[in-house]
């Protein structure tokens, strides 16, 4: 594992911790898209089916379990916690995420490493992760004002993707036979979706003003 990959994983972990912190400290999930959170929970459940079949490292296994548990806990909290669920911006979170699900699954059936149950679900999880942030970005754009923790949550998610790209570039030059086009192309698409957000995040950071997205 190289430093970029590790930094990416830590950014991913940090984003989840920031989100948990926001929900617990403020007892509110305003500005957070339940649809995006549901998609992420599904991404991890579909991808880590290999927990039962392949062992890579203790690090990998622990991280997989952390991602599964934390993402399902966030969804549970937003849906079931008496206080938290009242702050959910349901009327703003209207992105039709079932289309993303259907399209990702159809693509996974067509483009995969191997036509097996596990590989199809792996490809599905990669495609779904690439677009899972869309409901969240749409929700932020609709609400206009973004609170600090929500802004940081999306920032760390984007940073995680950026480090994964550096990791792939590094692996491409240091490893023989490094070719994983499905993950790399999907990863590029996923990172590109954050470009707009990063631009406004940078502007607000530079001017030391509250993050505001244009309508």
């Amino acid at each position: 594992m190289n430093i970029f990959r590790f930094a990416g994983d830590m950014m991913h972990l940090t984003s989840i911790l920031v989100l948990l912190l926001k929900i617990y400290a403020t007892k509110s999930c305003s500005g957070i898209s339940l649809k995006t959170q549901e998609l992420y929970a599904l991404v991890f459940l579909a991808r880590y089916l290999d927990l039962f079949t392949d062992f890579i490292s203790v690090y990998n296994t622990i991280m997989k379990l952390v991602f599964i548990v934390s993402s399902t806990a966030i969804v549970w909290c937003m849906k079931r916690d008496r206080v938290v669920r009242r702050s959910y911006d349901k009327q703003l979170d209207t992105f039709r995420h079932y289309f993303l699900l259907a399209a990702s699954f159809a693509l996974a059936l067509l483009v995969n490493e191997k036509f097996t149950f596990q590989e199809i679900f792996w490809a599905f999880s990669i495609y779904l992760e690439a677009v899972a942030i869309l409901p969240q970005l749409v929700l932020l754009q609709r609400s206009g004002n973004v609170d600090n923790l929500t802004g940081q949550y999306v920032f760390f998610l984007g940073a995680y993707r950026a480090f994964y790209i550096l990791n792939w570039i590094y692996r491409y030059f240091t490893e023989t036979h490094f070719s994983r086009w499905i993950a790399c192309i999907s990863g590029l698409v996923q990172t590109a979706l954050y470009a707009d957000f990063f631009y406004y995040y940078y502007i607000s950071w530079k001017n030391n003003t509250k993050l505001k997205l244009p309508a």
């Binding site: 890579i56 990998n60 997989k64 490493e113 994964y164 036979h177 993950a183």
Partner: peptide
């Protein structure tokens, strides 16, 4: 795909 650790990323 023959690589045993093909899916070694998270």
């Amino acid at each position: 795909v023959s690589d045993r650790n093909y899916h070694d990323e998270l």
